[in-house]
Nucleic acid binder design. Structure first.
Length: 232
DNA sequence: GACCAGGCACATC
DNA sequence: GATGTGCATGGT
């Protein structure tokens, strides 16, 4: 066996960063745009989300007040390239209405309260699940929360760092307790896990050339998708 | 033509 | 509490 989980996770991070470099997820974008992107990217290719965001910008809709005012049907038409546009228009509206009702349209309010409180508040919004809530906290608000997704779970399971039945919150807590608490680190690490996951850790793994190939791992991967279960 | 993508809510067992 | 399904576009 090699060292502790903490050491192993840091070694993985170094290996991934050396191989792929910084991923620059959500660089230079406004918190508003990041929140919108987090909602639009649900089960959707990022390229399609970029198209939808470009259309929103074109329509001058990357603004909470404008989003609050617009009709859901018209919003759906604008974000069409993101797919599932009727559902996503509803979710965007849910979020914006909630933001005005509860925080007077001030996203910053979420940066001013304890993390767990902000997370619990976000989770009350219909359309905001754990991954989206955590993406908002980390990428839009710079709070040190680890975003777990299907790739995160699969990569960590393949390298024997988590059980195959670990739930979302369990994986999140494992990462947050094993790593230095740093938004910058969590940001980069999550993006790197997605990158290595896409290239090498699909349900059918392609280990050749994987930056993590030299580390211990299961010979085969299951088709395990994400952190499905609740673990409270 | 399948299969996938930076999920989630809801129904059903 | 686990599993299945609809949402829907655009790339490979």
């Amino acid at each position: 066996m090699s060292g502790s989980s903490s050491e192993q996770l840091l070694e993985f991070f170094e290996a991934l960063l050396a191989a792929y470099g910084p991923q620059h997820w959500w660089p230079g974008q406004t918190p508003t745009e990041i929140v919108v992107g987090a909602l639009l990217t649900q089960n959707t290719n990022w390229k399609n989300v970029e198209r939808a965001i470009a259309r929103l910008r074109q329509a001058d809709l990357l603004d909470w007040r404008r989003l609050h005012e617009i009709e859901s049907d018209r919003l759906a038409e604008v974000i069409r390239p993101a797919g599932s546009y009727n559902v996503k228009a509803r979710r965007l509206k849910n979020f914006v209405v909630w933001l005005f009702d509860r925080f007077d349209g001030r996203l910053e309010a979420l940066a001013e309260m304890p993390i767990e409180e902000a997370r619990a508040a976000l989770l009350t919004v219909n359309g905001v699940g754990r991954e989206t809530a955590d993406a908002i906290l980390l990428y839009a608000l710079g709070r040190p929360v680890f975003v777990v997704d299907a790739y995160t779970a699969r990569v960590l399971w393949r390298h024997r760092l988590i059980d195959d039945d670990a739930g979302y919150d369990q994986i999140k807590e494992f990462l947050e307790s094993a790593l230095p608490v740093s938004a910058a680190l969590f940001n980069e690490y999550h993006a790197l896990l997605v990158e290595v996951g896409k290239r090498h850790c699909r349900p059918r793994p392609q280990c050749e050339g994987c930056p993590l190939e030299r580390f211990e791992h299961h010979a085969t991967a299951t088709g395990r998708s994400a952190a499905a279960a609740d673990d409270s």
